[in-house]
Design a binder for these strands. Structure first.
Length: 779
RNA sequence: UGGGCGGUCGCCAAGUGGUAAGGCCCCGGAUUUUGGAUCCGGUAUACGAAGGUUCGAAUCCUUCCCGCCCAGCCA
């Protein structure tokens, strides 16, 4: 792969593919899936979808879309006790709303019950499964623990005929719940708990929302999922990290029975968001215990909640795209989600005027009965959209309480006694008088004067004021219920604290309902319509909203750099970002387990001493070689050919082992003699270490002698300055920008230049010489 | 203490031996009739740690540390 970033048509850099898309792309390029890529989104219909599911939906449908394949929606409905059609409808609705389409690909695992049953019979016939009559508790007790292996079930030895008979009778409903289960016969001693004869069918005399009373037995996820994938021709079965342990069984079952295709399971990290919870169980509890108003409560991270709150599908998709697909556990900040809804709505939402906490203002010099209709554009100049409405202006108006302060701090741009501010789309006013409640001292009203020359857009005054505030006309404003939402929990990780129940960590201020006032143009809004209430935030008319009783949800506030300034403390020097503390070295060298403590046979111990004392190898290296008999033999044979133990040991340890991984040494075409010859070539300056790696790679593949490969590939070292100089000059000439940077002091660019020279000589150049030459030219 | 995965900026995340991408956040500045938006600039001498190999290591080798997952007849 080339190092240069790919760009799209507009010259923007195309983001790199995530690891899953890379696999899909390579599989497709390799002709592995002539029928195209097939993915699936497999929700269990036992709850509502949340934003974590959105990540998976965007991945699965996105991959299908991008690579010209398809994505099925399959309900993983194998546990009738918890599932409900209510959820299947909500799930479909949510996915469509998010903007994805499964086309014809709507399936249920329960559609496959008959086929799944036949697979189970086949597995039994092949000896891969048995009916186990242990109780649930007994099965648990005999499964062992993560450190001890399990014990085999006494029923493990049942013959095929008996198993078949029992399984048939299970299917016929002859046994009560729990009497028997069907188990895969794998390995009770497997270090992977999932492989210790997992249960694959259980008896449940429960009606299924889809198949009714047709089945008294139901397959388990581990059995149904891979087989359903295979039946649908799924090529890439993408799931979350907690299923990594299940993959071994996934692959196992696909080998045991005759499946029409072989899907591959790939796991990625699920999405977590701070200040919320993302587990279905917890979400269900919040709903059932009525900590929230339902699955679509706008504080919930469910798609239904986000939708009702006013989030757009685009914002959620953009957010999912931005967090990427990887394998490390992560918790994304709420701020990142908020960024994407603001970003989307900034371009889409019309601006209107509304007041959350009204403060009355009387314009003392404005005529009593006069009303002006002021033209107010829906979008600011920087949003390329058209449209406007008129807003009525009159003698009595309401402004935001926060926009007046009797004793304004430094930097406050709004109204204060004697100060001026502009009313958005209207006039500049000055605060002349503050009317207070005699008893409480509370500010009841402001008496201000307006400057008639300053009407917006009139161009009759060049008066400049610092602040612009929003307002509504008292006589014309509409009352509206404003639901101001904040994060559901008061701590970033409510589920992560073992000391405290997450319920105690709910944010008591997650919903604040206020009676606000909005401009009259909003009289006819319909639920779902979104606006920016200028300077406050984005709002969405709630489903509860009617013409008589307007209700708006605050989707998200606007960014507020004034608030930020206030919060970090007025007058404070701007804070530099705090550098992370240097973590103390958690392991002092002395505490480390010394390599000598490892268990060695007497022969190995002797060998190790020999390597260390006589051959001069470092202790760790000596131990490593000595403790592996095959490697040691290989090493000793090599140093008989070329007597440089240290160099040979380095090659064996650092290079050979890197390629070896788990494959046995003798399966390679490489001989000890050949490796010794290679090291000799390096020691004799015939080839550079860099070129030696190319040679080594060839030796590993073909088993030829190093000298032959060197000649074939023409890899003899170039250590002659007159030959190298032109190359060096060419590299310097080709990279004027980097030369300039280097000369400005970015001297770590030397590595870049050396790399370029090495590359253009195919690794043949003597790197030390290249360094010298380069330095002479650049310095 | 078995096995399977992870660990690169405050939060995400590229990168697989040759210049530590990008986004969010943050910090400056320009602009602005939204303290919004936009624009421009800044922010990791360093990749969990320590050793080693190499001219050159986030990438290869060794040892260690930390986190997550697995003992449902849930998915």
């Amino acid at each position: 792969m080339s190092k240069t970033p790919k760009t799209d048509g507009a010259g923007r850099r195309e983001p790199p593919l995530d690891f899953i898309r890379t696999i899909v792309r390579d599989d497709l390029a390799g002709g592995k899936h002539p029928g195209g890529v097939v993915t699936r989104f497999p929700p269990e219909p036992n709850g509502f979808l949340h934003i974590g599911h959105a990540k998976s939906i965007c991945l699965n449908f996105g991959v299908a879309l991008e690579f010209g394949g398809r994505c099925n929606l399959r309900f993983d409905d194998t546990d009738p006790a918890k599932e409900d059609t209510l959820f299947v409808e909500a799930i479909q609705d949510n996915i469509r709303w998010l903007g994805f389409d499964w086309g014809e690909g709507l399936y249920n695992a329960s559609d496959y019950f008959e086929e799944l049953y036949r697979f189970a019979v086949q597995l039994i016939e092949r000896g891969g499964a048995y009916v186990c009559s242990l109780s649930e508790a007994e099965i648990r007790e005999t499964r062992g623990t993560v450190t001890e292996s399990g014990r085999e079930s006494p029923y493990r030895g049942r013959g095929v005929a008996e198993n078949l008979d029992l399984f048939t009778r299970m299917r016929n409903g002859e046994f009560p719940d729990g009497a028997h289960v069907l188990r895969a016969r794998i390995d009770m001693a497997s270090p992977n708990m999932k492989m210790r004869d997992p249960v694959i069918y259980r008896i449940r005399h429960v009606a299924h929302h889809h198949t009714g009373d047709a089945w008294p037995i139901y397959p388990m996820y581990d059995f149904a999922h891979p087989l359903s994938d295979a039946l649908e021709g799924v090529t890439h079965s993408l799931c979350t990290l907690e299923f990594e342990n299940n993959r071994e069984f996934y692959d196992w079952i696909l080998e045991q029975v005759d499946v029409p295709s072989t899907p591959r399971q790939i796991e990625f990290a699920r999405l977590n968001l701070d200040y919320t919870v993302m587990s279905k169980r917890l979400l269900l509890e919040l709903v059932e215990e009525e900590h929230v108003a339902g699955w679509d409560d706008p504080r919930m991270p469910t798609l239904a909640g986000l939708r009702r709150r006013g989030y757009t599908p685009e914002a959620i998709r953009n957010f999912c795209h931005s967090v990427g697909i990887a394998k490390s556990d992560n918790t994304v900040e709420m701020g990142q989600l908020e960024y994407f809804i603001r970003d989307d709505l900034n371009r889409k939402a019309p601006r209107v005027l509304g007041v959350e906490r009204p403060l009355k203002v009387v314009l003392t010099n404005y005529p009593e009965d006069s009303v002006e209709e002021l033209e107010a554009p829906y979008y600011p100049h920087d949003v390329p959209k058209e449209g406007s409405r008129t807003v009525p202006f009159s003698r009595e108006i309401y402004i935001e309480r926060d926009d007046f302060l009797e004793e304004p701090p430094k930097g406050y741009h709004r109204l204060a006694p004697g100060r001026e501010a502009r009313l958005r789309h209207a006039y500049v006013i000055r605060c002349d008088e503050v009317v207070k409640d005699a008893a409480t001292g509370e500010v009841k009203e402001l008496r201000c004067s307006y400057d008639p020359r300053t009407r917006s857009g009139s161009g009759t005054s060049d008066k400049k004021v610092q602040g612009t505030i929003h307002w509504v006309s008292a006589a014309h404003a509409l009352e509206a219920e404003l639901r101001l939402y904040d994060r559901l929990f008061s701590v970033p990780d409510p589920h992560g604290n073992p000391e405290r129940d997450y319920r105690e960590l709910l944010n008591s201020k997650s919903l604040e309902t206020v009676k606000g006032l909005v401009e009259p143009s909003l009289a006819t809004v319909r639920p779902g319509e979104r606006f920016q209430f200028e300077r406050l935030g984005y709002f969405c008319a709630d489903t509860d909203s009617t013409a008589d009783a307007l209700v708006f949800n605050r989707i998200v506030t606007l960014r507020d750099s004034w608030l930020k300034l206030v919060q970090r403390g007025d007058g404070d020097a701007p804070r530099r970002r705090r550098r992370p503390q240097v973590a103390p070295n958690s392991t002092a060298p002395a505490e480390r387990k010394s390599p000598e403590h490892a268990e060695l046979t007497p022969a190995q111990r002797g060998r190790m001493e020999h390597y260390g004392d006589r051959l001069g190898l470092a202790t760790g290296d000596a131990l490593l070689l000595a403790s592996d008999d095959d490697l040691a033999e290989f090493f000793e044979e090599a140093i008989r050919v070329h007597d440089n133990p240290k160099a040979v040991a380095n090659w064996v340890i650092n290079e050979l082992r890197a390629h070896l991984k788990d494959t046995p040494l003798d399966s390679l075409p490489l001989t000890a003699t050949a490796l010794a010859e290679l090291v000799a070539l390096i020691d004799g300056q015939t080839i550079s270490g860099n070129a030696a790696k190319h040679v080594f790679a060839e030796m590993l593949k073909k088993g030829e002698s190093p000298a032959g490969i060197v000649d074939q590939l023409g890899l003899r070292q170039v250590a002659d300055a007159t030959q190298l100089e032109p190359v060096v000059d060419a590299v310097i000439a080709a990279n004027p920008d980097n030369v300039a940077l280097y000369r400005q002091g970015k001297t770590n660019l030397l590595g870049f230049f050396v790399g370029q020279v090495m590359k253009s000589t195919h690794g043949k150049a003597n790197p030390r010489l290249v360094n010298e030459l380069l330095r002479a030219r650049l310095d």
